[in-house]
């Protein structure tokens, strides 16, 4: 089986752990080998969190620079920062709604211009899917559904050996009951957003 490598970057608290859990549980449904590696610890203290998920036949579960097939960014600056993980054939999916780090407020750095940011990513990869994911999450019923919105887009690209049906199945069985409807809606919104991109 082909190996597919996914990197997810987010700011602590954005719910990236749930995104990776949903994806790996969905892979398990059809016995697709899946391995994941995460850096937590300081996640709750507002730092950057990164998950690497490897689908298919490989032993490794971390992803070297330039070797991710797809990069999902929950925050535009963090997507840009992770650009060293992808190559000219990779697909990048990013939320465009910024969470400026504190260093910006105290004058230690400037938040990049969003147009410029998208131009840079587009120039270096095969495809960029970018939209205001927070708006879609709100439309689905909860800002916290950003993670599932992005999962929806990711599945639409067809890069991973994971089907939309299986992801929805996991959303129904393994995410919090109260959020199932919101999450299903979020998934569809993300899926369509990617289809239109």
């Amino acid at each position: 089986m082909d190996t597919k490598r996914l990197i997810i970057v987010a700011v602590g608290g954005q719910g990236n752990l749930l995104a990776s859990r949903v994806l790996s549980e969905a892979a398990l449904l059809t016995d697709i080998p899946v391995r994941m590696s995460e850096i937590h610890g300081m996640a709750q203290r507002g730092g950057v969190v990164e998950s690497a998920i490897v689908f298919g036949d490989a032993e490794s579960n971390i992803i070297s620079d330039g070797e991710a097939d797809v990069l999902v960014g929950f925050e535009p600056l963090e997507t840009l920062r992770a650009l060293n993980k992808v190559n000219s054939k990779s697909v990048v999916i990013t939320n465009l709604s910024p969470l400026p780090p504190f260093t910006v407020s105290i004058g230690r750095g400037v938040y990049p211009d969003l147009e410029n940011l998208q131009g840079l990513i587009r120039a270096k990869t095969s495809k960029l899917i970018a939209y205001d994911g927070i708006a879609l999450a709100k439309e689905a019923g909860n800002v916290l559904a950003l993670n599932i919105v992005l999962v929806g887009s990711l599945i639409q690209t067809g890069i991973l050996p994971v089907t939309a049906e299986n992801v929805k199945e996991i959303i129904k069985t393994k995410t919090k009951k109260a959020f199932v409807d919101t999450n299903l809606k979020a998934f569809d919104l993300g899926f369509s957003a990617a289809a239109g991109a």
């Binding site: 203290r45 507002g46 330039g66 600056l77 260093t103 910006v104 840079l120 270096k124």
Partner: peptide, 21 residues
């Protein structure tokens, strides 16, 4: 080794160190 993307034109990015809550 596959060529790594040239990211030299990416502007300097503000850091995001962990912070007390």
């Amino acid at each position: 080794r596959p060529v790594l993307p040239d990211i030299s034109d990416v502007p300097e990015m503000p850091q995001r160190p962990p912070n007390l809550c």
